[in-house]
């Protein structure tokens, strides 16, 4: 029991230390990296929102266009950067594996956590800035929105646990990552809602954990203006499966990993 709690404490120490280190290397002491992390999605949401407003009208099915784009794009940036940053994560951090208590899974966890915190801050920033101007509503069901966002984070984390070791085993993974994220956008729920799709298509869309969680996020934000379709168990089960595969792959990969 004491060995277990010592192991847990050591893991917490490592994750904390890695978080601090990652923040200092990524955002430095002098540059404004963290600000960009928030400004970029806002710029996108406003520009695309304005463009769509002209093309399709200021509202779609009773929802403000800018709010709709922003609520999809912030999670998408989180997903995209987590996926791309999970490739070659062990090569970049290799020298830290000299310390035995640092585990390969810590690297993935920390990367995703940082992206998650960044995206959450981006959302808070955007919704405050655009909320004052009346473009983004106050969340109708904040609990639902948070639950959806946490589940979204869990799914992304579990997929990254698989991507990271695979990218060591095969270079192809790294190369095809950007294009596969792009192709996956239609099934990510980023720019659509399940209720807009015909029922036959909807059934397929709802197999995607991203769609289920985006539905929850949008339901939490817009409330009864939207008609949500979701099943909480879908993202939970999908993440458990991915996590298990990921942990097995990480273990395998670690045994053969050459640490310089």
């Amino acid at each position: 029991m004491s060995a277990l709690s010592e192991g847990w404490n050591s893991q917490i120490r490592v994750v904390k230390a890695l978080m601090v280190r990652e923040l200092t290397t990524r955002f430095g002491r002098e540059n404004i990296g963290f600000l960009w992390m928030m400004a970029e999605p806002m710029l996108f949401a406003v520009l695309v929102g304005v463009m769509w407003t002209y093309l399709k009208g200021p509202e779609e099915n009773g929802i403000g266009m800018i709010a709709f784009v922003a609520s999809g794009y912030v999670p998408l940036t989180f997903l995209r950067s987590s996926f791309t940053r999970s490739t070659s994560i062990f090569v970049a951090n290799g020298s830290l594996l000299y310390h035995r208590q640092v585990k390969v899974t810590d690297f993935v966890l920390v990367r995703v956590l940082i992206e998650f915190v960044g995206a959450t801050m981006a959302w808070v920033f955007i919704s405050l800035a655009l909320g004052i101007l009346g473009y983004i509503p106050v969340p109708a069901y904040p609990g639902m929105m948070v639950a959806g966002w946490l589940l979204y984070g869990l799914v992304v984390l579990s997929v990254c646990m698989v991507i990271a070791p695979l990218s060591v085993m095969s270079e192809v993974v790294e190369k095809i990552m950007p294009v596969s994220v792009y192709i996956a956008i239609p099934i990510s729920g980023t720019f659509t809602m399940a209720s807009w799709a015909p029922p036959s298509v909807r059934d397929y869309l709802l197999m995607s954990p991203m769609v289920n969680t985006m539905e929850m996020i949008r339901y939490g934000l817009f409330g009864d203006y939207v008609e949500p379709y979701y099943n909480v168990w879908n993202p939970i089960l999908v993440s458990i499966v991915f996590l298990m595969i990921g942990l097995v792959l990480c273990r395998r990969m670690r045994r053969d990993l050459v640490v310089e």
Binding site: V20, R21, T24, T25, S95
Partner: peptide, 16 residues
């Protein structure tokens, strides 16, 4: 090799 983050300072590595 190993044990340190090259891009971080000696103090930062010590802190880590």
């Amino acid at each position: 090799n190993g044990g340190f983050q090259g891009s971080l300072t000696g103090y930062d590595n010590a802190r880590f």
